[in-house]
Amino acid sequence: MSRSGHRPFSLSRIGALSGNTFTELVRLKVFYFLLIFALLLIGNSLFMARLSFQQEFQVLKDVSLGAMSIFTSILAIVATAQLLPRDVEDRTIYTILAKPVPRYEYLIGKLGGVLLLLAFSVLAMTALFFAVLFLREHMLIAATMRETTGMRPEQIQEAVERLKASAFNAGLVPGIVIIFLKASLLAALTLFISTFATSNIFTVVVMVFIYFIGHLQSTAREYWLQEHGGGVLVKIFVAFVALIFPDLQLFNLVDDIVAGTAIPMALFAKTAVLGIVYTSVYLFFAWVSFHGKEL
């Protein structure tokens, strides 16, 4: 091997690590949770017969997007928490880092594998969700056609258009992308914590706290600023808290989507950039903590 042969950054090494992590998680059968999601959707559809179609679609979207958000978050935390400790415990990490693999590539590879898993999970859940939505839409259109027999064609057309508008709306796909980005930042943060955590349970417990604080902090912040005013120090403190505990409420666009409100492009772009920045910053923190770690 030549001295100049080693590349400090190799996409093929990262690809191998990500692919391996993805295979590990898939063979651990983590995709079984999709069955629960499918059952939830089917169960949900069965109990909505008595609702109006607007209500039915609202509930379907609310339940599906809410479940997607929770499932991907849980998956991101639980799947990531065990990756590093297990490699250390089984000494597999020695065999990997004794190869010409920089530690940042190892971390990027591990996170990449989890993100791949999350992407597949979100895609599978989206496919299930859209399939149920599509089926219900067509069933309701058929029912509407039957009920409106004898009406003027314009009236029928109007009823069908109204129904279609409340089924699929423009906010669905951006909303799902944001759910994925929220799970990504949670995975990166979990990876960071697992670089210094003493056990998987510690990592998961800390992440559960962060998850709740992340969702509640915007309410607490508003209350605090109202009560104590917004001096420079307070703002710095609030920004610091927002860095340590991500403001997860910003990633909660489900209510707007359910209400049928279109997500403005600017809001989507801002939230997406925020998700990517959070993920990158936590990955960097993970590297800072891990690069000098004695194995």
Binding site: N20, L28, R91
Partner: peptide
């Protein structure tokens, strides 16, 4: 490198 008592990825 071969570490002492290594466990590789058992699903591979």
């Amino acid at each position: 490198f071969l570490p002492e008592n290594p466990y590789f990825y058992k699903y591979l």
